[in-house]
């Protein structure tokens, strides 16, 4: 392996060295719970027949997504994908609007024009994905190019799944970014499978992060069940990019704990693999870390945070359900932009 293998984060002191104080540690915990909670509730709503279309979750990747999202700066920009709910949450996306998106309501980010995880709050520096993978990788590179041209100390983050790294878009994005040493971080959510296709039928190299060498930058492999290690490595990569050090390829290793989408029972995943990874659940792992290192966590903080998250999500579902379905008479609206809409902060 050419890529660097990141070490685990075992103590609060190490987390502090990566810029996290105790309140940050608890906030990360809350983000993890909100991330999983939104997808669990969405799943229930889907089974109740309330969510049209299909439904995807990122179970198993909560730490990977929250860890990177939390490491991004306020003015940074990201193009998260289908397993990255945690990025939206870590950057402050309002859960009720996510439910409104799922439900196809006017307050969803796509206003009913698009659904499920094809969403983002652009005001938070996030760009909504399209289905076509990894079409947003070159987009993130374009954002990084703009930062470079304008001498802004901002960084773009481009996510891809393991499977989507097989497409040409991904190669072109990394190559261009490497040539120009642009301020962009490429994250791979390597959850072992692309739909039913295992890593071994997707790419022949040992680790995807090794490919970074060919593009002239560093590759790092990190355990996606260790939210603090993901955060530390993402922060390093982002700050390096911000200081002119060029791109990094960060491969986050997890297992996709559910089917590709809710219709898929993942029969093709070898027996025992889910059970083995369930023992390494990222949220349980982090809870154990907090219980060991944060005074009062196991006794009261944990329960208080869980209760607060539960209430937040109850309220979010209720509010989303009050949002109306779009009026069919508006079906033509929005195909072309109105000049008055060009005032989003990230456009300036």
């Amino acid at each position: 392996m050419v890529a660097r293998e990141a070490a685990a984060v075992a103590t609060p002191a190490e987390a502090r060295a990566a810029g996290l104080d105790q309140e940050d540690l608890l906030l990360i915990y809350r983000h993890l719970l909100v991330t999983r909670g939104i997808e669990e509730r969405g799943h229930i709503l889907y089974r109740q027949g309330k969510i049209p279309g299909s439904f995807y979750t990122g179970r198993g990747n909560e730490a990977g997504a929250v860890g990177v999202g939390f490491a991004m700066g306020l003015d940074d920009v990201g193009c998260p994908i289908q397993r990255d709910m945690g990025v939206h949450i870590a950057r402050g996306t309002e859960p009720w609007r996510i439910f409104a998106q799922y439900l196809g309501r006017v307050d969803g980010f796509a206003r009913g024009r698009d659904g499920n995880v094809h969403m983002a709050d652009f005001r938070l520096g996030l760009v909504a994905m399209v289905s076509h993978l990894p079409a947003m990788a070159p987009v993130a590179v374009g954002a990084a190019l703009a930062f470079r041209l304008r001498n802004q100390p901002r960084v773009a983050v481009a996510w891809s799944g393991d499977g989507a790294t097989s497409r040409g878009d991904w190669h072109e994005a990394l190559n261009f970014a490497g040539v120009r040493q642009l301020p962009v971080v490429f994250v791979i959510d390597n959850n072992g499978f692309a739909y039913s296709t295992p890593n071994a039928l997707e790419f022949p190299s040992g680790r995807l992060a090794d490919r970074a060498t060919g593009y002239g930058f560093e590759g790092v492999v990190v355990d996606g069940t260790d939210v603090l290690a993901v955060h530390r490595e993402a922060r390093r990569a982002i700050e390096k990019a911000r200081e002119g050090g060029g791109p990094t390829l960060l491969e986050i290793v997890t297992l996709r704990m559910e089917g590709h989408a809710v219709h898929d029972d993942a029969f093709y995943v070898p027996k025992g693999l889910h059970e083995a990874w369930a023992k390494r659940d990222p949220i349980e792992r982090y809870r154990a870390f907090l219980a060991e290192h944060v005074p009062g966590f196991a006794e009261e903080r944990d329960d208080a945070i869980r209760l607060e998250v539960k209430q937040l999500l109850n309220e979010a579902v209720r509010r989303a359900d009050e949002s109306p379905l779009p009026d069919p008479a508006t079906v033509l609206d929005g195909v072309y932009v109105d000049p008055a809409e060009l005032d989003a902060p990230h456009h300036k």
Partner: peptide
């Protein structure tokens, strides 16, 4: 009509 295919059922 000349739009992308919308997601929400009424649309």
């Amino acid at each position: 009509p000349d739009t992308p295919v919308p997601f929400s059922p009424p649309l």
